[in-house]
Design a protein around this nucleic acid. Sequence first.
DNA 1: AACACGCACAACCGCAGGTTT
DNA 2: TAAACCTGCGGTTGTGCGTGT
Length: 284
Amino acid sequence: MGKTACSSEEGLNKGAWSSQEDQILTDYIKTHGEGKWRNIPKQAGLKRCGKSCRLRWLNYLRPNIKRGNISLEEEDLIIRLHKLLGNRWSLIAGRLPGRTDNEIKNYWNTTLLKKIQGKQSKLRSKNEKTKVTPKPHELDNIGIISVAADHAASEEKLNLENKVKDNIITNTSCQKDNSGKQAWNFKVEEFLVSDKSSDIDFWKLCHELSETFDSEEGGGSSTSSSSYGELRRKYWPSSCQPLLFSEEIMLEEWIKKDDIVGCTHQKLTKIDELLNDRLNWNSS
DNA sequence: AACACGCACAACCGCAGGTTT
DNA sequence: TAAACCTGCGGTTGTGCGTGT
C-alpha cells in the first residue's frame, strides 16, 4: 500500500502553524472546498504536507469547532461512549457536535483516564475488603444482536420485521439458512451511535413487533420460543423498550450451551445496560 | 531568579483500508 | 487484477505554559 510520508518530503515546515499559514489555508478551502489534500499545499502555496493541512483544518480551522470547556454533560457522554466503543475517537467525536477526535482523545488521556482510574482503584480496594467479584457481564464486550424473519410467520409480523430491518442501520449483514429464514446482524455499539438510536418512531416500531411476538408465544408456539419468552420476561426490565432479536436465532445459538439461563441472562443484562444508557441519554 | 517538573494539547507518524488508474 | 494513490484513524511525540521548589 502506498504511504504518504510527510517526513520524507524535504523543505516542508513542521511544528506549530503560523497565523499566516492558517489564513492561507482557510482562504484556500473557503474558495475551493475540502478534499484533494495532497494538492492543497502546492496550489495554496503552503510549505506543508497534505496530511498536515487536513489535520490543521479539521482540528482547528474548520468553522463551528468548539474549543476547550468540555461540559459535565459532554464528559459524561464521552465516558459512556468510550465504555461502548473503546478508543474509537472519531465515532465518539461524531456524537459530540463541534468536538474533534483529537480533542476528545487528548481530553481522555490527560483528564478522564485519571478520574476513571482513581474511581476504579477506589472500587478495587473496596471490593478487596468486601471480597466482591465483578459479574461476568461487567467484563464482557458487546455482542451481536440478530433480527430474524420467520417466513412461516404472519404477514403482519413480517411487515413489521421488514420495516424494522429497513430502519436499523445501513451496514447490516444478512444471512439466510436452508429453510429460508433470514437474520440481519448488526453491532449494537454501531447502532447506538447512529442517528437511528435516537429515533423514537423506530423504538415504537420495535415495541410493536415485540408485542406481536409475545402474543404469538401466548398462542402456544414451539417450546423453545416459550422458554425464551419466559427468559425474556424474567430478565427484561419493564422500564425498557425492547430491542428486537429473534427467539429462534438466539435459542439456536445458545441452547447448545449447557448453561442457557446463565448465558442468556449475561447477554440480556448487557443489552439492558446499553438500553438504560440510551434511555438516560434521551431523558437528560 | 532559575530550574525542574508535570500537564495540556497541537502536531506528527505509521498503518489500514478504500479508491483510482 | 494489481499497483499506486488518497484519506482517515489512533498512538505517540514535541512543545509551551504554569506551578512548585
